[in-house]
Simulated scan of single mutants.
Amino acid sequence: MKHDSYNEQRERGNFSFPVEYHYVTNHHPRYNMPYHWHIQYEIIRVLEGKIVISIDENEYTASAGDIIFITDGCVHGGKAFLENTIYECMVFDKKLFETNVGDKNILQKFFEHHLIINSYFNNEYTDIHRTIWTIFDALKTKSSGYEFIVLGCLFNFFGLVLKHNLYTKSFTNFISSNQKNIHKLKKVFHLIETSYSQPLTLEDLANTSGLSPKYFCRFFQSMTNKTPIAYLNYYRIECACSKLTSDKDQSITDIAYSCGFNDLSYFIKTFRKYKNTTPNKYIKSYFELTNK
């Protein structure tokens, strides 16, 4: 899943059908999702293995057959729990529902966060399971009329959420407190996104959040399960993976420096830590698979 910025502001799909689809295996440059957020909704279905998804301050472990729903504006990231994990995701904009079908006021309650859709659906929810599977199968094959199938199934999904009461009503005080924490994270993520190629210190990150370095470390780790510097290096490696597989004109050394590493041996050591391989082997493996 290619998330090159924490706040993804790019257009999804096209104007008439703002839906984007991704099929992700362990050879995908964005196999493990860095934390990010966007103004669109996202649905993930796990085909094989297991993935841990963090959404704001909650964590969900999804196995084959499980579904994760991510509301717009939520900070989220993921890590495959098993090496053979395969998952798909679709990202869609609420502009897709600018139609006169049904009661638009009910949909607006979701879009305006008065009603918060549950994030996790296991195989127990068979009707939702069938609906989401139909959506992904249509997006994968893109046969004639698939857009109508996707839109119809998304309406069906919202209808089933309402039918089975698979949502919670928002509580203003809780949301306000929670959003303050998320806002601090978003500011730190924005700094990392825009300045990861530059030297960044713990003090730089802490100052962006408005917290002392000591408290910021505890806060950041409680939200992401990583220390700030560990996460910065993790994000730099994710960016390096994207460049290694998309820019053949740059050397590994050039890419290392462009991603904020000023020492090639440290870059290779850090790369091996997060990817269990060297940059050269990563490139070779990626292109061997994509050229099959």
Rank of each mutant, 00 (worst) to 15 (best):
K2F: 07
S5E: 13
S5K: 14
N7C: 09
R10Q: 05
E11T: 07
G13L: 04
F15K: 14
E20Y: 12
T25K: 05
P29V: 07
Y31K: 11
Y31M: 04
P34V: 15
Y35A: 09
Q40P: 00
E42W: 03
I43M: 14
L47Q: 08
E48N: 13
G49R: 09
G49W: 03
K50Y: 01
V52G: 02
V52I: 07
Y60K: 05
A62E: 08
A62S: 13
S63P: 00
G65V: 04
D66G: 03
I67G: 02
I67M: 04
F69L: 12
I70W: 06
H76M: 10
A80C: 14
A80V: 07
F81E: 14
N84C: 04
T85G: 04
T85F: 06
T85Y: 08
I86K: 15
C89F: 07
M90I: 12
M90Y: 03
V91I: 11
D93C: 09
L96S: 06
T99Y: 08
G102K: 12
D103T: 03
K104C: 01
Q108N: 14
F110R: 02
H113P: 00
H114R: 10
N118V: 00
N118E: 14
N118F: 10
N122G: 10
E124Y: 15
T131K: 13
A138K: 08
K140E: 11
Y146A: 05
F148M: 08
I149S: 07
V150S: 01
L151D: 00
L151E: 07
G152E: 13
N156E: 12
G159R: 12
G159I: 08
L160I: 11
V161P: 05
L162P: 03
K163W: 08
H164I: 00
Y167D: 07
F171M: 05
F174Y: 15
I175L: 12
I175E: 14
S176C: 07
Q179I: 04
N181C: 04
K187S: 05
F189I: 01
P199G: 00
L200Y: 09
T201P: 05
L202A: 03
E203I: 10
L205M: 15
S209V: 01
S209A: 15
S209Y: 05
L211V: 01
P213C: 11
K214A: 09
F216A: 06
S222R: 15
P228W: 13
P228V: 09
A230V: 05
A230E: 15
Y231E: 10
N233T: 06
I237R: 13
A240K: 10
L244G: 03
T245K: 09
D247Q: 15
D249Y: 14
S251I: 05
I252E: 11
A256F: 01
Y257D: 02
Y257P: 00
S258D: 14
F261M: 01
F271T: 01
R272I: 00
R272K: 15
K273C: 01
Y274E: 00
P279R: 13
K281G: 00
Y282V: 01
I283N: 06
Y286L: 03
Y286M: 04
L289R: 15
T290E: 13
N291L: 10
K292C: 02
